[in-house]
Design a protein around this nucleic acid. Structure first.
Lengths: 201, 201
DNA sequence: TATTCCCCTATACGAACGGATAGGCGACAT
DNA sequence: ATGTCGCCTATCCGTTCGTATAGGGGAATA
């Protein structure tokens, strides 16, 4: 079984790869430090059985990178790895076609099991982790609101966000107001901070 | 050589521990998921040669946890491990008595070398990583600016911050402008996000 | 002593934000 | 078919922010 691990933290990537490589049934583990490196790797000589992508990594841009990798990987299952992302992100990832979601709070042995499971073509999501999704869904944001929040976190003005999303500025104001209310934030800055803390973006 | 690794991400902690345990000269690796667990571990039957603490971990509270561990560890060297902390934090950690700083961007083999080095009582800090400290120190914030930044991160308005610090609103505007320039932030929201990322506040 | 740096204040103005109100459109469920 | 919900747009108004310009006071340093 051949695995590709992509994570920008050298220490984390190498130790995870090493651990996987020493597990039964896993023949080869290749690594990449960025999404672009990973995209090159899938064009290489090996056909992988599973591709693991870190959610926070240069080139990922949220689930954007997942789409790019799925495009490049063809039938090879792709799954998301993250230490900070929320259950909502995990859910979104799977809905976007990820073969699973591996939080870094998962134990190393469970991780190996999950990897083998996903490589067989089964969708994996840790039950206890996903439980929280239900709770979070109460104060959940819509698709647009999430996109606007993303812009807020990059320090963009309403006008810039409007241009990026091809909308009118007033519409952005509306979304900012509603998402701030949902997050119980007092203003855009506070909303961005809350998003950062909860790793919503 | 006996090592204690404390990190709240199970996957990261276990794989790093496993990697260390398979290295020459390292006889035993014990792990902990929180600072409190780590504090219990140092009271246990083994005397460690080195203690590695994750900077972002329940109980740490920045460098507060380092002080607590140093208190409990006696002569055993303690060092900080982090994937997000800035060179400034690394510098502060060493000044506060840490035996070193290990960024997660470090390669796994370098990490093993660093661990052995620190266990021998030598202070370790990766040169290239610390180089940035010099640059960042140039754009360092003054006391007031830091206080204002703190307010920004709580989503306060200039007026509120002014009231809290017993200053005029215009003064806050001044500080916001200068600290934003120093952080290369485009506005208050961006400044707050940068602060959050770099763990400046 | 002169210089530099941090800190505080003042006035002023255009740009951006926050909120209210009001309406139209499409989708989906009861 | 009616209701609900997400989404987009519009106008309006008061507040806040961002920036510029122009100072004064205090502390440290060369």
């Amino acid at each position: 079984m051949r695995i590709l691990v992509a994570d920008d933290h050298d220490l984390v990537r190498e130790t995870i790869a090493s651990f996987l490589a020493n597990s039964d049934g896993i023949a080869l583990v290749e690594t990449a430090a960025t999404l672009d490196e990973a995209l090159v790797a899938v064009q290489g000589e090996y056909v992988f059985d599973l591709i693991l992508l870190d959610y926070n990594m240069p080139g990922m841009n949220g689930l954007n990178g997942l789409a790019r990798m799925k495009e490049a990987a063809g039938k090879v299952p792709v799954s998301i790895l993250s230490g900070t992302a929320s259950p909502a992100v995990a859910q979104a990832a799977i809905e976007a076609g990820a073969m699973g979601f591996v939080p870094k709070t998962l134990g190393s042995k469970s991780m190996v099991s999950a990897v083998k499971f996903m490589a067989m073509g089964e969708v994996y999501a840790p039950f206890d982790f996903m439980q929280k999704a239900q709770e979070k869904t109460v104060g959940n944001l819509t698709e647009r609101e999430t996109a606007v929040l993303q812009g807020l976190c990059e320090g963009k003005s309403n006008k810039e966000i409007a241009r990026d999303l091809d909308l009118q500025e007033v519409t952005i104001k509306l979304h900012v107001k509603t998402l701030s209310r949902k997050l119980e934030a007092r203003n855009r800055t506070h909303a961005a901070m809350i998003a950062k803390e909860r790793c919503l973006v």
